[in-house]
Nucleic acid binder design. Structure first.
Lengths: 213, 213
DNA sequence: TAGATTGTTAATCGATTAACAATC
DNA sequence: TAGATTGTTAATCGATTAACAATC
């Protein structure tokens, strides 16, 4: 039942392949070789072929890869051939920004609910999605089939909320709270830590100025 | 002049060390061993010691690490001992969310300006920061010493804007646009690709359901 | 068929972990 | 001093790159 384990490094690269293939598709390119794609993407052709061969042979010797076919296949690998229902917990600026981000919908991530504890936000609509109070969550989760919860709330509430969501059947969490969630291992967590990203930037800025002093 | 090159993997871990040390500091912990920290952070003690020793010996045999000292030192390595002036290009939902995110200010990232092309946004204030039109950028950049530009605009404008900013002296870009920027190598780029993060999540969801079918 | 390009094995490189002498 | 724990070297593991036979 268990498939061959694919390394995290490979999976992190797949969305980027998918993006480049999507752009090639839009530009009407029919086929592409690993060599040409490697030049565009600034990675080695060898890596592209290795990565793709984790999932089977999508190419053809002497020809390369059919752009449309490869795009579709990588989409399937990434699970983009189906829709996901998502809720957002924390309707602050970031939560509302995510709810407004139409691009996710295009990829099949449908925002079904937006929750907060602040009574002032109750009933406010963001792109047609009404903000509900978190105490309505149990009933909401019973009525709707939700696969993903995005956590855009202050870190001090994140752990408790994550536990609550997992208890109520959520199995995938997109975590924007600046804390590590410790959840059962069958729960999938994807972290987006913006401040850590910013610190990598400042590291490089200050390293650069140290080196050029 | 050139310091020993530190691997990206190490740098990615530094902000997490910084966070844990900050929490220990708040809780009043004075010293910690690599062994204890490794348990909390779920990494090996060996990795912690290796990582830290890239930057010199912060610990003491038989004692461990002084939490406050280590926290300060990692802060310095990350460049958090100074302030950075930042502008945000694109005052849509995400741009405004970033501008509102007070936590960055606490770490020394000061939002000095917010720019957009949409005349409807002109003069609107976000947390006291007035939204300006992008044609005011050249004058603004001349008057202010800006180190970081966050790009929260649609990808089709991102490349052009990035080139423009680099021409006007910006040397660090925090890129939220879903595209790769090709800039001179002395320009520091840190990408945050939210849709790619979401795709890693959906990959894991659909892998999980494949494996448990 | 000849040329191109994949799929795949082998070689290299880099990162992580283990081990332990140094030393507080 | 004895025990604890670092700093650092060596061993292992994994990921990337190179090479090339297979084949379209």
């Amino acid at each position: 039942m268990e498939e061959k384990e694919i390394s995290r490094a490979v999976i992190k690269r797949l969305p980027r392949y998918y993006r480049y293939l999507g752009e090639l598709l839009e530009s009407g390119t029919e086929r592409i070789s690993s060599g040409e794609l490697s030049e565009r993407m600034q990675v080695t052709a060898s890596q592209i072929r290795q990565d793709l061969n984790n999932f089977g042979g999508f190419g053809q010797q002497g020809y390369g890869y059919n752009v449309k076919h490869l795009h579709t296949e990588i989409g399937k690998i990434l699970g983009l051939d189906q829709d996901y229902n998502m809720i957002i917990i924390g309707a602050g600026n970031l939560g509302q920004a995510l709810a407004n981000y139409v691009k996710f919908e295009k990829n099949g991530f449908l925002v079904k609910g937006l929750f907060d504890v602040n009574p002032k936000l109750k009933g406010v609509a963001v792109r047609g999605i009404v903000i509900r109070m978190t105490d309505e969550l149990p009933a909401f989760l019973q009525e709707h089939d939700i696969q993903i919860a995005a956590l855009t709330l202050p870190k001090q509430y994140a752990k408790e909320m994550a536990d609550f969501l997992v208890d109520h059947g959520i199995r995938a969490i997109w975590n924007f709270a600046h804390t590590d969630l410790h959840l059962p291992e069958d729960v999938i967590i994807e972290n987006v830590h913006l401040s850590e990203s910013l610190m990598q930037l400042s590291y490089n800025i200050s390293r650069y100025s140290r080196e050029h002093k």
